[in-house]
Design a protein around this nucleic acid. Structure first.
Lengths: 144, 144
DNA sequence: AGCTTACTTGACTATTATAGTCAGGTGAGT
DNA sequence: ACTCACCTGACTATAATAGTCAAGTAAGCT
């Protein structure tokens, strides 16, 4: 797993939108400026998120993008898979993007990387946008 | 962290050499054939490993490469860092390859990825070549 | 010594991914 | 009907990946 700029911008944009008032639309230009992202690149990303059912949009004067799914239902894992592909460190231990790679026959190496994949997948599948925007004190899973 | 063909070949070659008799030299052609790797690409990799002090070599008739460091002292982490760079999923949580990336200001995202980085680094720094070549039963950390 | 073997060096190439940009089109609201 | 802001698809530049290639150097055998 390797986060790219595209994937990081997508996460940041979602976090931004999750923090807005429900049913409020935010313009691309605004999000881009506030988060310091290239606006046209961000637009590309928001459109992908829209096509995948995360965002709704409105054209014209008070238009923009808004979140249409509950932030509690959006995991980091699915967003990263959408933009950056496999969570696994190598395709031969990936569930969603499996492909054989050179190490596939070395069972003990595979086991090590599978353990890593499992940890990453578990962590990112259990972390939602809501967790990310929650104030420090309320974060679920935080030490008591 | 993302394993590339280069990194996977490096690990496999080291595993291969760690299994050979001490002080025995293996030819590039032999390793390449047995492991199904492109010989000239493998050569490039073995030379990098030699320059980094993992291997020794001998020219001529009974020449080849051999391991010169104890397999217990070679961790997967260092090999992967040498060929594929950072273990972290993004440079902004990397210790050895730090660079600021877009998510750096979103503390709770950073925390998630730092946890992932820590797990990967811990696992790969604790796993040595010797662990990889050990027969199933003796593997340290295996369930009793 | 000379030949063969096999490591060694450095440059070179093709393909793919990444990080964007750009021009023009569509629909909502005033 | 005009403006704003989304929308579409194609386009570009740079870098990384996965190799290949040609020429050289050193070791050992005859």
């Amino acid at each position: 797993m390797k986060l790219t700029a595209r994937g990081e911008y997508a996460l940041l944009a979602l976090v931004y939108l999750a923090r807005q008032k429900k049913n409020e639309y935010s313009r691309v230009e605004t999000i881009a400026k506030e988060q310091g992202m290239p606006p046209q690149f961000l637009e590309q990303i928001l459109l992908t998120l829209k096509r995948s059912g995360y965002l709704g949009s409105l054209k014209g004067h008070h238009g923009g993008y808004r979140l249409v799914r509950a932030s509690e239902q959006i995991t980091l894992a699915e967003v990263i898979r959408l933009f950056d592909g496999a969570l696994a460190p190598t395709a031969s231990v990936s569930r969603y993007f499996y492909e054989p790679t050179p190490i596939r026959k070395e069972a003990s190496l595979v086991r090590v990387f599978r353990d890593i994949r499992d940890f990453i997948a578990d962590k990112l599948e259990k972390t939602t946008l809501a967790d990310v925007i929650a104030p420090e004190a309320e974060r679920s899973g935080a030490a008591v």
